[in-house]
Design a protein around this nucleic acid. Structure first.
Length: 824
DNA sequence: AGCACGCCGACT
DNA sequence: GTCGGCGTGCTC
């Protein structure tokens, strides 16, 4: 029978809109399968690892397909249902499958070749025929057998190296090689065991005698080995490094290997081996928690998604643990999503102590090797009890689940669930719901301050709803006190950025040995420095933003591109030396507080102070252990932290949040303030929250005072309906980007005009965003509002078509078009 | 995303 | 004159 030729449509890890078709060589036709990685050549020389999306026998028309070079995997590394999920993300969030693949696969599974230049074996170098540059390369190749293109670029100190390489190729002096290598390497551990010969007692006795006389060090080593294997008879081998640590030298060990006493074997070892120790503490639910749990269970009978609205410190985690337990018992996997994993050590600790070794953690701070191991464990978890529970940040939803039973999205309102850059610009909360549905699993969203969208869905019975309105241990909700900054300014009772009310409360708490959290949603020292005479403000060279002053490094810094410069001693515009600082950030609060309370230990937690790997953990531990008394921080301190001794929380500037120019500003302000407030008061003691504001009668402040989420929800809903925002309308935001201001403006006008033809007044813009220039690119933006009654799918396909058309036009081909579905 | 081809300015 | 800059188009 004539064998049929197979063709594979593959996904390349590149932002390309289509799949590419390769011919499967007969020899590999038994090895290929959907979800396996293959090596392909793409373009003139580059080699990539691509992923097989589909196999078929349809030879492509119009071009000759290249052959696949090899198949990398024995078993698929991506499951069919994952591919399905990838396709959904790519169509819903309007990005390419390659972009999804790039985000989803650990990068150690994505391979790319590097071009290396080698000396040709038949090369006859005649130096007089070489240019200086060619000579430099040949000379370097004498020392080093191969050079990468970037190394050559360094040697020549120039970017364009191809002409030189090309000329060397033509002279047949060098050749090119594409090097690709598997990045994942299992960790190897050496073990020491006895050779079969050494197991015989007579032989061994003789050996002892010999060693005693001539090689005491070797004898010591042998004795150390015996000490362990005697203690535990089942032990046949010892880790080499541990054995050597007990005082043996490598030389002695090698000698014993040579004498055929010891045998060294190498085994692969897990990096992410999880300890199985769990504390089996019995989990006791309060009556309220039991009721919530029951509500969730009964809602799950009729709904796939349930929203758990539980006030701060109502003990949502215990409810989650129960549900996880039930799912695991039923033999299914659980995905527990957290907005930012680095901030969730407390929750992980609790899960680990309850479930032990079946909890796997996956997040961006793990190294590549560890991520591949977790990936592989999850792949095989269907059959084993490994990694039944995965805790992770948004990227963990891309792991290969085979039998997902429950997805928990904790703090579902958090904006960090949305990936902004690069594509795929997905919202992990929404994608998780799709993931759960498609796998027949349930999804549980939890929050003390649900997003308006989720609560709306719950009210309209799209989701089920469960409530937990009582704090655990019956602690009362904190007392909220308003401190009117406008009034205190008038009465001159304010000290810098602190009202007398706040200062008094801080002093009171500290005197009682209690801890204080201060929240200021702005990092740095002063967001603005300004010339007192001419109002000149230093700006970033690459972005249209003013620079923020950071006192610690004495630098003005751009929070968009990282540009920084020394602060000027006099005004650059008028030469006056009267430079003022306006506004304040966490750094300044920390500084000033030290003046009012010189004996108090203050810690600061923001993006600047947690840059190093363990800084975050250290700050938390110090605060937990009461090494520090006051914690000053940005929104970072609102996420998933439980402290038992905090009695007082201060919100330094509520107004800056409320006046943020965005339709979600009120929702976001409410969420942030309620969440920080929730950090105060524990163990039966009522906490206290001081909100500093110049607008004490602001409606959002009133909702916070009353702890009334539903009132905020109603009010917001009315506004959203009136102005055409989610949940009534879906948004698609399209940003155009170009180096040239005029090109950008023209492009934006043309682009918007096209969209307007179709969408009419549902299209807003083009407008400059808040920051109209970032990293030397000018930006312009249009916003598309799609009503609930019209088809989003259709709208998206129209937009995609227009974008493609637009990109095809020569004058605009250099304009970057970025589409963001459901932007935040 | 790379990477090659092709068209214009500052230098041997 | 060419070298080397970057804009444009293609990759199965």
């Amino acid at each position: 029978m004539e064998p049929v030729t197979l063709f594979a449509d593959v996904i390349l890890p590149l932002p390309l809109p289509r799949l590419y078709t390769y011919r499967v060589p007969q020899a590999l036709s038994g090895e290929v399968a959907t979800g396996k990685r293959v090596i392909v050549q793409f373009g003139r020389q580059k080699i990539y690892s691509a992923l097989i999306s589909t196999l078929h026998t349809q030879a492509p028309a119009g071009y000759e397909a290249k052959y696949l070079l090899s198949v990398l995997d024995e078993q698929p590394v991506v499951t069919e249902s994952q591919l399905e999920f990838w396709k959904w993300i790519s169509s819903y969030y309007m990005c390419t499958l390659g972009e999804v693949m790039t985000a989803a696969l650990p990068s150690a599974l994505k391979l790319q070749s590097e071009t290396r230049v080698l000396l040709s074996p038949e090369a006859e170098v005649r130096h007089e025929e070489l240019s200086d540059k060619e000579f430099l390369i040949i000379e370097a190749l004498d020392v080093q057998s191969a050079l990468t293109l970037s190394e050559i670029s360094k040697i020549l100190d120039q970017k364009t190296i191809f002409p030189v390489v090309k000329s060397l190729l033509e002279k047949k002096l060098v050749m090119l090689e594409e090097e690709i290598e598997e990045k994942y390497r299992p960790r190897k551990v050496d073990y020491v065991s006895l050779t079969p010969r050494a197991a015989g007692e007579d032989w061994m006795r003789e050996m002892f005698g010999q060693l005693e006389k001539s090689a005491p060090r070797q004898l010591d080593l042998l004795m150390a080995f015996y000490k362990h294997t005697m203690q535990d008879r089942s032990l046949k081998k010892l880790r080499k490094d541990l054995l050597l640590k007990e005082g043996g030298s490598a030389a002695a060990l090698n000698a014993l290997v040579k004498k055929e006493v010891f045998l060294i074997t190498t085994e692969a070892e897990d990096r992410v081996a999880v300890s199985g120790d769990k504390e089996d503490r019995e989990l006791r639910l309060s009556e309220a928690q039991e009721q919530a749990l029951e509500a969730i269970r009964s809602e799950f009978k009729v709904k796939d998604v349930v929203l758990l609205h539980g006030v701060t410190s109502s003990g949502k985690t215990e409810v989650y643990i129960r549900l996880i337990e039930e799912t695991v018992k039923a033999g299914r996997q659980v995905l527990y999503l957290l907005p930012e994993i680095a901030l969730a050590t407390q929750i992980i600790r609790r899960l680990k102590s309850h479930f032990g070794g079946i909890v796997g953690i996956y997040h961006s701070r793990f190294n590549e090797q560890e991520r591949v191991e977790i990936w592989n464990k999850a792949l095989s978890a269907g059959s084993r009890s490994d990694m039944q529970i995965i805790v992770g940040a948004r990227s963990s939803m891309f792991l290969p689940f085979s039998n997902l039973g429950l997805v928990i999205v904790d703090e579902e309102h958090e904006t960090s669930y949305k990936q902004f850059d690069p594509a795929p610009r997905y919202n992990a909360r929404d994608a998780a719901i799709y993931l759960a549905r498609s796998g027949g699993a349930k999804a549980l969203l939890g929050s003390a301050t649900p997003s308006i969208e989720s609560y709306y869905n719950a009210e309209h019975r799209k989701y089920g709803l469960a409530e937990l309105s009582e704090r655990y241990g019956n602690t009362e909700l904190p007392e909220i006190i308003l401190a009117d900054t406008a009034e205190e300014k008038r009465k001159k009772t304010m000290k810098s950025h602190f009202t007398s009310v706040l200062l008094a409360s801080i002093g009171e708490a500290l005197a009682k040995g209690e801890q204080v959290i201060l929240f200021q949603n702005r990092r740095g020292y002063a967001p603005l420095i300004q010339c007192g005479t001419c109002a000149w403000v230093p700006q970033c060279l690459h972005c249209d933003v003013s620079l923020t002053y950071h006192k610690h490094h004495d630098l003005l810094r751009c929070h968009y591109c990282g540009y920084h410069e020394k602060p000027p001693s006099r005004c650059v515009a008028c030469g006056d030396s009267h430079i003022q600082m306006l506004g304040f950030g966490t750094e300044k609060i920390e500084d000033e507080l030290a003046l009012f309370f010189p004996e108090v230990r203050i810690a600061r937690m923001d993006a600047d102070s947690t840059r190093s790997k363990n800084a975050y953990q250290r700050i938390i531990t110090d605060f937990e252990n009461k090494e520090t008394n006051v914690l000053v921080g940005t929104q970072m301190i609102t996420k998933g932290l439980d402290f038992s001794n905090v009695s007082t929380v201060g919100i330094l500037n509520a107004d800056s949040m409320l006046s943020f120019p965005d339709f979600r500003a009120f929702e976001r302000s409410f969420q942030l303030m309620i969440q920080v407030s929730g950090r105060s008061g524990r163990r039966g003691k009522r906490g206290k929250v001081i909100i500093q504001t110049a607008r004490p009668d602001h409606p959002v402040i009133a909702h916070i005072l009353a702890h009334d989420y539903k009132a905020l929800f109603r009010k917001e809903l009315m506004e959203r309906n009136q102005f055409g925002f989610p949940p009534f309308f879906r948004l698609i935001e399209i940003t155009l980007r170009h180096r040239d201001f005029n090109v950008l403006n023209h492009a934006a006008d043309v682009f918007a005009a096209h969209l307007k033809e179709v969408f009419g007044d549902r299209l807003l813009g083009p407008e400059y965003p808040l920051i109209p220039r970032v990293k030397n690119y000018y930006l312009k933006r249009v916003l598309l509002k799609i009503g609930r009654d019209s088809s989003v799918v259709q709208a998206k396909s129209i937009v995609s078509g227009l974008v493609l058309d637009f990109k095809g036009r020569k004058e605009f081909s250099s304009v970057f078009v970025q589409v963001d579905v459901d932007p935040l």
